[in-house]
Write a protein that binds this DNA or RNA. Structure first.
Lengths: 155, 155
DNA sequence: TTCAATTAAATTGTGCACAATTAAAGTTCA
DNA sequence: TGAACTTTAATTGTGCACAATTTAATTGAA
């Protein structure tokens, strides 16, 4: 087998390892989040909104987008679904009608209490040392940093 | 900030690091694969088919699914698109009409030559030591193994 | 001031993922 | 045999991702 053949072997693709693990982790979350009535991307949006203050400086759609690296094409319909579920309120900002501010309803805040269980439930029953998870998380974030701050292609 | 609050912080979610990096890596591949006329999942399917023998023991849809952890709901339309592009041939197996065998056309094999460039192009221009990538790949695969061989939930 | 640029979100269209169901072919065993 | 079960893909329906375009509001210069 040539060097190029080896490069094309599925098992040698870091991209595949990342792709497969990401989907496996998402699948682990799915039943836990289903109890909250959330999908995985909806959960990530809620994490952002729970962190972000409400009121005057409530998160804009673009704030959530910057945090999660998602655009309005993904977020607009997702946020409408969260609004339909009564978790989120979307309202145009009076002083700049282009901006949509996102605030949480009572139910939106209440859901956070139930969500507190999720990270613990996910890790437990999984025979992996916490330090190992932390180390991986740091490595993933470090590589994300590099990818986002280097030229989009080979030169 | 409580311990639970910290657990819910986006930056502490390994799931988010994985999700964001996976999409960033996919985005890196996109322009390279666009030159081949492939999407990222299509590229992964082609990697499997290039590895798998043609002829009598050509890959079945379920073989590709087992390798990539994808079901027929995802693969059937994707494979039809590859067939429309003239890269793949789907045919029912005569001895067992339930099975669909996947073989590559001339163009499907020819595309492999162009694809040889991809892994190299991706890594170059990215200031990350190869050993670091290999280490991460091993860690990701190890965790995938653990996830796939442990109970689906907290018990 | 007014008109060209910019900005923010929404819309449109394509292609995954995945749950759930269906359809058809093959197997097993009373 | 033939009825129950299993296996394999395909289908249906929902919800992301993301490119490309559109709409509307705001800003910035000549």
């Amino acid at each position: 087998m040539s060097a190029d053949d080896q490069m094309l072997a599925l098992d040698n693709q870091i991209c595949f390892a990342l792709y497969a693990l990401n989907r496996a982790v998402t699948a682990r979350y799915r039943p836990l989040l289903a109890e909250l009535g959330l999908t995985y991307p909806q959960y990530l949006v809620m994490l952002v909104l729970w962190e972000h203050g409400s009121g005057e400086e409530a998160a804009r759609v673009s704030d959530v987008g910057a945090r999660l690296r998602l655009d309005s094409g993904t977020l607009t319909p997702l946020l409408k679904r969260l609004e339909d579920r009564g978790l989120v309120i979307r309202q145009r900002q009076a002083t700049d009608e282009r901006v949509v501010r996102l605030s949480l309803t009572e139910d939106g805040w209440r859901l956070r209490e139930a969500a507190r269980q999720v990270p613990g439930q996910l890790v437990c029953g999984l025979d992996v040392a916490p330090e190992r998870m932390v180390a991986l998380r740091h490595e993933l974030r470090s590589l994300l940093e590099i990818l986002e701050h280097s030229a989009p292609n080979d030169q």
